[in-house]
Design a protein around this nucleic acid. Structure first.
Lengths: 186, 204
DNA sequence: ACTTTACTTTCTAAAGC
DNA sequence: GCTTTAAAAAGTAAAGT
C-alpha cells in the first residue's frame, strides 16, 4: 500500500542551540579552516560540515543555528562535530547543549496531477495564495498542524514550517482528505 | 494646547497631502497603462480602504498605490501583468507583488487567479490580429486549460502561445518574437506552451 | 537548440541595523 | 523590514556552447 505518506522525504532541518559561552568570532574565523565571516554583511560566522552535510551559523553570543541537514540525527551529528571542534580550540562548551528543532522542510508526491485553479477556489481563496505569474506553486496555510504547503500541478508538494517529525505526515493526510472531498484528486 | 493643535493640523495636512499624492500617482500610472476611468476609481477605493485599515504602515505609499491599481485591473477583468505595472511605477516588481499579496489578504479581496483569456483582446489588437484569431486563441486556451495544462503556468505566456498558434491556424502569422514582445515573455516560453497546446488541440 | 546557472515562493532561528 | 544559511517544488529567463 504505497500512498502519498510513503513518499514523504525530509529535505532540510533547521535547529538552534547554544554553547553557553561568548565567542570571539574574529579569532574563531582564523582558527577554523573553511569558516566564512563577513561581519559587515551578517553577524554570524558560517561553518560547513561535510559528513553529514550541513551549515552552521555561529554567533558572538555562543548561539548556533544549524541548517541543511537531512534528518534530526544529522543535526545532532553535525552540531556534535562543531562542539568538538570548538573544544579542540580550548573553548568551553556546555556538556549537553539543548538542541531545538525550529523547522522541517519535507517533499512528497500526491500521485495525481492537480488543477491549481480549481484548488484555489475549492480550498478557499482566503487561505490560498496562487499567483502563477510570480511562482508556479499554490501556497496553502494549514492550521492543524501549523504548516505551509506548496502544491504544484504535477502533484508534488512541499511541507514547511513544521517542528515535529510527524507534522508532514499529518499535513499530507489532511490535505489529501481536503482535496479528495473537493473531488479534485485524480 | 496650541502646540498640540498645530501638530494635529500638521499631521492632518501631511495625511491629506499623502492621499492626494497616492491618488495622483494612481491616475498617472492608469493613464500610462491605458486603463479606463472606472478602474482608477476602483483602485482609489482599494487604496482608501488600505489607508483606513492602517495597512500602509511599514510600506511605501507608492507601493500600496501601485498594488491597488494592479488589484483593480484584475478585479475589473482587464488585468495588467506585474511587468507592465512595474514599467510605469517607480516601485520594483518584487515589492509590487509582495504588497499586492499583503493588501489582497488583509482586505479580503479574494481575487481569482488571472484568466489568460483576459489578455487576448489587448495583445491581439496590438498585433493587429482579426476577431477570428482572437476567437481561435480563446478556444485554444479553453481546451488546453481544461486538460490541466494551465496549472502553474504564467497567464501571459499561456495567452501569448495561444495567440501565436491561432495566428498560424488562421493564416495571419505573427513571429514568436512579435508575440513575445507585446506579451513581455520570451520566445522560449511561447515555444514551450505552444507545443503543449497544439498537442492538446489534437493537431500535430 | 541545447545545457547550465540562477532567480521566483514557503519556513525558521540567530544579532543588529 | 533587511542582511545569511539550507532545501524541495516548477516556471521563467539569460548566458554560453
Amino acid at each position: 500500500m504505497s500512498g502519498p505518506a510513503d513518499s514523504i522525504e525530509i529535505q532540510n532541518v533547521v535547529a538552534s542551540t547554544g554553547i553557553g559561552q561568548e565567542l570571539d568570532l574574529e579569532a574563531l574565523a582564523d582558527d577554523l579552516p573553511g569558516a566564512d565571516f563577513n561581519p559587515d554583511n551578517f553577524p554570524g560566522l558560517v561553518y560547513r560540515t561535510q559528513d553529514p552535510k550541513a551549515a552552521a551559523l555561529i554567533f558572538r553570543s555562543g548561539k548556533i543555528v544549524c541548517t541543511g541537514a537531512k534528518s534530526i540525527d544529522d543535526v545532532h551529528d553535525a552540531l556534535g562535530i562543531i562542539f568538538d571542534k570548538l573544544r579542540e580550540l580550548q573553548i568551553p562548551v556546555d556538556d549537553d547543549p539543548e538542541i531545538t528543532v525550529q523547522n522541517i522542510v519535507s517533499s512528497a508526491d500526491l500521485g495525481h496531477n492537480l488543477n491549481l485553479n480549481a484548488l484555489a477556489i475549492g480550498l478557499g481563496l482566503e487561505d490560498v495564495e496562487y499567483e502563477p505569474e510570480q511562482f508556479p506553486g499554490l501556497v496553502y496555510r494549514m492550521d492543524k498542524p501549523k504548516v505551509v504547503i506548496l502544491l504544484f500541478g504535477s502533484g508534488k508538494i512541499v511541507i514547511t514550517g513544521g517542528k515535529q517529525t510527524d507534522d508532514a505526515a499529518t499535513a499530507v493526510e489532511e490535505i489529501v482528505e481536503r482535496i479528495d472531498a473537493l473531488g479534485l484528486l485524480g | 494646547r496650541l502646540r498640540k493643535w498645530q501638530e494635529r493640523i500638521r499631521t492632518k495636512d501631511a495625511g491629506e497631502r499623502n492621499l492626494q499624492f497616492a491618488l495622483s500617482e494612481i491616475d498617472r500610472m492608469a493613464s500610462a497603462l491605458g486603463v479606463p476611468r472606472s478602474v482608477r476609481e476602483v483602485a482609489s477605493v482599494i487604496y482608501r480602504r488600505a489607508l483606513n485599515e492602517d495597512l500602509i504602515r511599514g510600506r511605501s505609499i507608492e507601493g500600496v498605490a501601485t498594488s491597488a491599481l494592479y488589484a483593480a485591473c484584475r478585479q475589473e477583468g482587464i488585468p495588467r501583468s506585474l511587468d507592465e505595472v512595474a514599467e510605469v511605477s517607480r516601485v520594483p516588481q518584487k515589492e509590487i507583488g509582495r504588497t499586492y499579496r499583503y493588501i489582497s489578504q488583509e482586505l479580503g479581496l479574494e481575487l481569482k487567479p488571472v484568466d489568460p483569456k483576459q489578455f487576448v483582446p489587448r495583445f491581439a489588437s496590438a498585433l493587429e490580429l482579426s476577431e477570428e484569431v482572437q476567437a481561435k486563441a480563446t478556444e485554444i486556451i479553453d481546451v488546453s486549460a481544461e486538460q490541466g495544462l494551465l496549472s502553474g503556468k504564467s497567464p501571459t505566456g499561456f495567452a501569448a502561445a495561444a495567440i501565436y498558434a491561432a495566428s498560424l491556424l488562421c493564416n495571419e502569422k505573427k513571429t514568436q518574437r512579435e508575440v513575445a514582445d507585446v506579451a513581455q515573455v520570451t520566445e522560449v516560453t511561447i515555444r514551450n506552451r505552444y507545443q503543449e497546446q497544439i498537442e492538446a488541440m489534437g493537431f500535430r
